[in-house]
Design a protein around this nucleic acid. Sequence first.
DNA 1: TCTGAGCGG
Length: 130
Amino acid sequence: MNHRLMKFVGRLQTPTLSTLRTLCSSSSPSNNKLFVAGLSWSVDERSLTDAFSPYGDINEVRIVYDKETGRSRGFGFVYFSKEDEARCAKDAMDGKAYLGRPLRISYALEKVRGAPLVVPRLRSASGRNK
DNA sequence: TCTGAGCGG
């Protein structure tokens, strides 16, 4: 039947499977990697680990710092061992204030080699997006 | 020093 399609697919480069998965998962990539923004500048990995520990097993916590000033950029990443734990932590901590700042938690975008990082827009400027 | 979007070390 569709062996022509399979032949066409076979001609393509196969290492784009992760890219295809990223593209097919339309809005919420639902990984065990959490993107945590809205952090206070005084938050470090230890504080984030202590804040997200009761929601699951954390593999790693990384906070992004500025290369020049060395200050925290106000966002970081939390790696859980299970995506259910990440979902629980996101549902529990998203929107709640931590050290005086409301947290914005989303699922982290997967860094794909050779592909430009496309950031989904959260808020539509003109309100046209529903 | 003050700074507040945002996907990386």
